[in-house]
Design a binder for these strands. Structure first.
Lengths: 135, 135
DNA sequence: ACTACTGTACTATAGATATAGTACAGTAAT
DNA sequence: ATTACTGTACTATATCTATAGTACAGTAGT
């Protein structure tokens, strides 16, 4: 199973999907600090996208301090992942919660079900164990 | 305060932001079934975007069954909002939960804080009351 | 009929996105 | 030096996104 997936049909650009996916892997601990990430060409081949698209995601993550590149050698997860400002952290969290709540409401789910799914998602994240038998 | 906002700087296209925003308003009940939505030109002026961009969002929402257009008269919230397939509903919900959990983890938040924010977001949604004094 | 609104359908332009392909500089191992 | 990898920087093409502007068909009120 690939740890990273992209969908060209989505409205959000591929480089953004890659960026978000890598942030996820780093945040969940699947990619530890100092660990090497796939080369631009390897990941591009793996995802069936253009190397330039992967390069753009890597560049943005380097600027954000999530990744660190050693030229000619490879790209690695940064040792000191950047800390978020308190105000921004709060804003991001609130916005994400609103987004998920909207999604759940649209699907006809209430607080309980949404919260339950959230707990499951957290467990999957921290347990580094992929969610149940989905194809 | 505008009920709908868009950010041209985001990676996700404006028509997608409008579509999602309207889905949110409908799901939260801020826009009741049968109620008229702003005209393409009005909303475009209000959001400072192009009418064609709003039109694209409206068209997609019509195809999805969320909106219903009476030609020459206006666009209205559909009386029978489409029900999601059980499998898809579950998939969407799970995916949204995973996305939010990732976001929270990236921000350094645990299950408790994420769940708390979720409850707040739900209350804001169902209470039709905008979140605290944000400008 | 006239006016004013509605959604829709074009043209044209500019920028972002994604693709393929090529080339260059730095690092490591031989 | 050679080989093989790394990230980066280009050209060129095609598609999508977003813009401005114009035009047309349908509806309602006068």
């Amino acid at each position: 199973m690939r740890a990273l997936r992209v969908d060209p049909a989505e409205a959000v650009p591929i480089w953004s999907q890659i960026e978000e996916g890598l942030r996820r892997l780093v945040a969940s601990g699947a990619l530890a600090a100092g660990q090497a990430v796939p080369s631009v060409r390897d990941l591009a081949r793996d995802l069936s996208v253009n190397p330039a698209t992967v390069a753009k995601a890597y560049q943005r993550l380097c600027e954000a301090g999530v990744l660190s590149v050693r030229r000619g050698e490879g790209t690695y997860v940064s040792d000191a992942p950047p800390a978020m400002g308190r105000g921004e952290r709060s804003r991001i969290l609130r916005q994400g919660a609103a987004r998920y709540a909207t999604l759940a409401a649209t699907a006809g789910a209430g607080v309980e079900e949404a919260s339950s799914e959230l707990s499951t998602a957290f467990a999957d994240l921290e347990g580094k164990r992929p969610p149940g038998g989905k194809s």
